[in-house]
Amino acid sequence: MAILIYTQNYDGKFKKSVFELVTYGVAVAKELGTKVTAVTTGKPDTEILKELGKYGAEKVISITNEELNDFSAQAYAYATEQVAKKINADLIIFGNNPYGRAIAPRLSVKLNAGLAAGVTALPSSVSPFTVKKRVFSGKAFADVVIKSETKIITLNQNSYKVEENPVDITIEEFSAEIPEGAYAVKPVEIVKSSGKMSVTDAEILVSGGRGLKGPENWGMIEEMAEILGAGTSCSRPVSDLDWRPHEEHVGQTGKVVAPNLYIAIGISGAIQHLAGVNGSKVMVVINTDPEAPFFEAADYGIIGDAFEVVPKLNEAFKKFKAEN
């Protein structure tokens, strides 16, 4: 029995979502009476690797192959497979992010392991191994039984509370065998984005819709985001009209987000939009139309004109931040 957690680092650093995976893995390990091993690539510094121990990982395997500095789903799947076999992993946990979505399906074929994607909670039973996952774009959940000996899950971000649980961590270096041909997709160039907070990482999102009437009115949205240390996002029509960049579009066909607080301004709350944000812990809606469907999904609502309400709210947030 062993649990392997795939911990992706970005430029040698781990993000909070990785500590969430480790915390979750440790909780599952307790149920199964086993321990957690993390695996990562790119040789992060020892001090960085040790952070995983703060959340309860007893071991981290650092894959040293330099070719893995470039991402290839095929190469990463080979490397992860070798580590999984080395520690006899029977449960492998990924984040439900672009890396997990690229590697986990391949590993599932290699190990003939059932894969549950988009898991949102601890297993409701370990035998048979049953997890809850998001289905119908968040309009429902399903209990999935994974029947194979080796199991793989991808955990939705912000599904589990990060908790420290310090243990001594062993660091082990590992050199994987990557067959030729695993780099058939060639990276040409990376175009860096503006460096703003990504919508999937933000704990608070301030989101604007067509009710804001034009891109020139986003100043107050950005101001609110700055006061709250939040990210900004938008509805589909706004990104389709090019008022805001596509990476800000949240919804069924955009990014799926689950922040602690989602503030929707001038967004009516069409079912397709709600499908992308209904994992948020708390939702606030500000809209002129009392019939806007978003009021049925939200926790707090203000019926009013955004151009009057938002500046007042920004002042109130500013005052609150100054006092707290």
Binding site: T130, A140, V144, D299, Y300, G301
Partner: peptide
Amino acid sequence: AVTEIIKYHLPEPKPACKMI
């Protein structure tokens, strides 16, 4: 088949939106 859905759930109904 190595996975099977055994039960579906609808999300918990949310308490009514608090109007401010």
